[in-house]
Design a protein around this nucleic acid. Structure first.
Lengths: 154, 154
DNA sequence: TTAATTGGGTACCATTTTAGTCCTGTATAA
DNA sequence: TTATACAGGACTAAAATGGTACCCAATTAA
């Protein structure tokens, strides 16, 4: 499936919710209500997003969460890595050559290039795009050109 | 991480191995030896690839596995979906609107577009590319243009 | 026709990952 | 000072994943 974990999904939904009302501060309880998910789970997700620097939090009365920067400067890749860690398709495309099968593998390098292309794609999609109810019409063509999967030939 | 399962990784390595010697028939045992993985695991992977129509098998003496079609006509997306099922980033991007949170979600459509872009990218990478020890220099720019993530605006 | 070879299918178990919950602590504003 | 709300971590339950074993089916050559 190559799919996102459920928590990552929640994170995107919650971030979009905050982005649509970015002027206000949102409590975990309000957000949980808005997106119809259990409070503790939403809370956990929010904490991860704070730790990743995508949200800022304020404790106490009138506290809550706000975007740490404009939605146009937060990418899908940011949200995914906040929850799941770095975007990479294979174990070996993140850690440095720790794979003892490297000798017989023969596809590692090319997987890394594919990985890079996907990462670049995800970096070109912003929270502003995701939160928008209109279809994305972002310039995805452009960043992909800069990938061209031959990047590693340098 | 957005990562492939380990079996998918194995599948890619095994497929690449077969692709590099596509004239011969490969037994599960030979392949397991070549890629240094346990025989039963490789065997299981091979069966999935056969079921997906990417490999053909021949039983009996002198039997083994061969590519069902040229490596240039087998894509990374084919291999991934053979093992993990359809390439999709979220639950709801494969099944038809079964998500009861759709009302409060608000990001489903856009995730689907991202999903589509990734799928198209993976479809543009062939087994021939993966098996090649030289860096991929494939025309990834072109298919991406056809995505442009505005496809769903139609 | 029979024996050896090789894949096919299924069921099972162990491990890991994921998800969800709870508890206790800390900061803040009224 | 008290109610509110986030911070951090521990814990548990559930699910997915990976790996193994076993027995069956097909093919071929002697």
């Amino acid at each position: 499936m190559l799919k996102l974990s459920r928590l990552t999904d929640y994170a995107a939904v919650v971030m979009a919710q905050i982005a649509r009302h970015h002027q206000a501060s949102h409590t975990a309880a309000d957000l949980a209500e808005a997106v119809q998910l259990p409070h503790p789970t939403v809370s956990k997700t929010l904490k991860m997003l704070v730790k990743a620097g995508l949200l800022e939090s304020q404790r106490g009365v009138q506290g809550g969460y706000r975007l740490a920067r404009p939605a146009s400067q937060i990418t899908a890749a940011d949200i995914i890595s906040a929850i799941e860690g770095p975007v990479a398709m294979t174990e070996c495309s993140q850690a440095e050559g720790e794979c003892e099968l490297a000798a017989t593998c023969g596809v590692a390098d090319n997987w890394q290039r594919v990985s890079l292309a996907i990462r670049t794609l995800l970096e070109s999609v912003t929270l502003a795009h995701l939160a928008d109810t209109a279809p994305i019409k972002l310039p995805v063509q452009l960043p992909i050109q800069s990938i061209s999967l031959s990047a590693a030939s340098a």
